[in-house]
Amino acid sequence: MAERRIAFEAARLGLLGFFGLVVLAPYIWMVAASMKPLDELFRASLSLWPERFHAIENYGRVFAEVPVFHYLWNGLVVCGGILVFQLMFAVPAGYALAKLRFPGREWVFGAVMLGLLVPPHVPALPLYIAFSKAGILNTYAALILPATISVFAIFLFRQFFRALPDELVHAARLDGMSEAGIVWRVVLPNAWPAATAFAIFSVVAHWNDLFWPLIVIEGPARATPALGVLYFRSDEAGDDFAVLMAAAVIMTLPLVLAFLFAQRRFVEGIATTGLK
């Protein structure tokens, strides 16, 4: 029995290790290439370690030619702005749908369910036209606005708030709190798991999004990290894969680092937002 278990565990780790290596391959080669000089890349050797260490030149060129921190800052502003608005709209609405009785509540909830069915690509065209008419293309507002209303967030918070005991709300009312006060001071602090889960989900989605920024942004002034890599790829880097890989490493790093630090939260966040 013991030998069988060891054999099984070895097979399990072997399989996982193999597939893990396949999944990690792009990262490994990306990092390796980012430290090699271009001529070494062109020789297409299979050795991972650079013969001539060229990391400083490659990364130096990226930092010299690409406003890396500017793109990251843009990404931060956009993701942060989106998240703040999403919570501001969704938390009170989720609370009202879960705990308050008001005329038209069923209609509002029906609208939320309907909204869940519509992918963000559908309203994109008319929004583009409207933004272009309003002259706000190429602004943070254009990047942030369409994502501020998340029916998914409303739905998620409603489900979560419904599970909170009514007594909590009633006690707060007896203590003389207003409904808005209850939302931000009683309900939200108790909804922390749902809020972090949604925050992670939202940031991952919008940090990685390319479709919408590609539509409303031109030029580097308001470009998100995703756009930044795209510009760099087509303009400066051309076929200089070494420098391109260095740029890719830099742009991928922030979110990956955040993930590695708060791994459990990320995985749980995606799992709970996915399954509810």
């Binding site: 597939f19 990306m30 995703a226 890599v229 894969f241 890719a248 742009m251 979110l255 993930f259």
Partner: peptide, 25 residues
């Protein structure tokens, strides 16, 4: 935890950047 992180890594990686990595690969 280790393998879970490894397989999950692509989900949190900037798609555009990783696409460039794949292009090289």
């Amino acid at each position: 935890a280790f393998f879970r992180a490894v397989f999950f890594l692509p989900v949190v990686s900037l798609t555009v950047a990783m696409a460039a990595a794949w292009q090289y690969l």
